[in-house]
Amino acid sequence: MKAVINIHTSDVGSSLLWLLPFVILALLFYGNVWARGVYQEPDAFVQEAFDGKPPEARLLWLTSGIRPKAKQILGHEPATRRVRYWTSNGRSVWILDEIGKDQPITTGFIVNQGKLEKVKILVFRESRGYEVRYPSFTDQFNQAGLTNNMGLDRNIDGISGATLSVRAVSKLSRLALYYHAIIQKNNDAP
């Protein structure tokens, strides 16, 4: 006996509905797998910032005068007592780490005359919140400065599902601006 199954196009659509959960799972998995990675080596970021001729690295020691404000920005004590930076002609480059949820996000900052010139996620190790690496997010920081309250002088739109990563990058951008202000102040001091 020949079984003839006559199914309309709409039936085909509904019978394929069971595939939907698998497709969603596959998409989620795809996103997570590609979330983690080194997007640019920190060294390459520094090279690029100074057109291949970076100045020598310098150290900012987080003395007792600096640490409380850094702590205020981060919400916890800075992990180390000194920070490396590169500076030339009023521009400075900072490579900073902050934990989003579980893992540190390494971010590169170029600060020019007290304003952020560039923000770039260099290494992302978390399994979620990778959307912060997109220029559509990081470009929001361009030309942002620091207010007297240690906040950014503009609103940064968040990303749903990436709240902790957004918070981490925002904190680091304020920290980079704060550190820049300190080295500028030190340079201006007689």
Partner: peptide, 16 residues
């Protein structure tokens, strides 16, 4: 580390 044991810095190949 400082003598008191506070972490000052971590140096890796990326730091030269």
């Amino acid at each position: 580390f400082s003598i008191q044991g506070e972490l000052i810095d971590r140096l890796r190949s990326q730091d030269g």
